[in-house]
Simulated scan of single mutants.
Amino acid sequence: MAWNPSDIPDQSGRTFVITGANGGIGKQTTRALAGKGGTVIMACRNTDAAQRVADRIDGDVRVSALDLADLASIRDFADRTGEIDVLINNAGLMYVPFSRTEDGFETQWGVNHLGHFALTGLLLDRLRDRVVTLSSIAHNQISKLRTDDLNYEHRKYQRNPAYSQAKLSNLMFARELQRRLTESGSSKRSYAVHPGVSATDLFARTETPLDKVSKPFIALVGHSPAKAAESSLFAATMPDADPAVYWGPTWLFGSRGPVRPAPSSTLSKDREVWRRLWEESERLTDVTYKF
């Protein structure tokens, strides 16, 4: 029998931080966790939009400002945040034109990976249970992670490979974090999940003609944001979920379906690349993890 959100145990007394919670998968994840009694902190750049969403969700839902494209904002958010049970690294950008973050990072990699890397490290001492990081089936669309040029300083920017690099980095980060937690003897856990394909606003922000047609097409092959949120919900709430497993849908090449152990690329399992990515992420963000 497939897992479904009705299987989520009562979350009363547990606090969740969800990045990018004001739309799409993040909004659905917020609604489900609040509905099970959890306290949810919506960590969002646009706090006005987030508050409008929060006001329409029953339960203990709070909004806190966080801009993952700005390390100063990430540090400020961490300083304002007390103990939490679960961090869900959900926010993301996809296929956007070339730009750089406030700190000079290529934006897709800077927001999707480096922002979450810094946030997780800064909150780790206040985290009681687990981290859930959203990757993507797009992680398998590149055959090499250029750890010598992750920030696109010496190569031509291509938006699709840049997105794949960011989502591969998410997957490798989650796995390396779990390896380091286990090595340190910590009971905390790190999960990598993917949501499949869903017609969220990610498909309407590429600033190309595809913005007008991609969402209807994606709706045909993918599944709803509520279904896409199930991978995050499973990993965030199920006590016996295995952190060694990459959780997500497997139907139609991973586009849709129930939450199951999902395949990942050979490259994503390369522990030496995990290490190099981790070291470069620490260097660029100046965030050093303390286990």
Rank of each mutant, 00 (worst) to 15 (best):
T47M: 10
A192D: 07
A43I: 04
Q141S: 09
L267T: 13
S231Y: 04
S231C: 08
R126E: 08
S164K: 11
D58S: 15
Y289K: 01
S214V: 11
L171Y: 05
N160G: 14
F203P: 06
M238E: 01
D58M: 15
A54V: 11
V61W: 00
F105P: 13
G185E: 00
E282Q: 14
S281T: 03
G92H: 05
P5Q: 07
K212I: 00
I88K: 03
G59T: 13
F77W: 05
A72Q: 15
L71F: 09
L33Q: 12
R159I: 07
S169Q: 04
V213G: 07
R146P: 04
H113A: 15
G37R: 09
W109D: 03
A174Y: 00
F105A: 14
L267V: 14
R62I: 11
Q141N: 02
K188F: 01
S265Y: 10
G13M: 13
T237P: 00
T39C: 11
A219L: 13
M1S: 02
G13Y: 04
G23I: 07
T39S: 07
S198D: 11
D149A: 07
S12M: 09
E280P: 04
W274A: 03
P5E: 00
Q165E: 12
A32G: 15
Y157K: 13
D103S: 09
R179L: 02
F173G: 05
F117C: 09
L177V: 07
T285K: 06
A69G: 13
N89W: 02
S187F: 02
L71W: 06
T208V: 12
L123T: 08
L284V: 13
D7L: 11
A138I: 01
S268P: 11
P161Y: 03
Y95D: 11
G24N: 00
A162M: 07
L66I: 10
R130P: 09
A34G: 12
E279V: 09
S264N: 13
A162V: 09
K227V: 02
A69P: 06
R276M: 11
S224M: 08
H154W: 10
V63M: 00
R56T: 14
I41M: 05
V287C: 02
T147F: 14
R146K: 12
D270H: 09
N89L: 10
D70H: 01
I74S: 08
N160C: 11
R130F: 00
F16L: 14
R175A: 05
I41T: 05
V86W: 04
K144L: 07
T19F: 01
S6E: 14
A50R: 01
E280N: 12
D10R: 01
H113V: 15
D211L: 05
Y246H: 11
T39W: 09
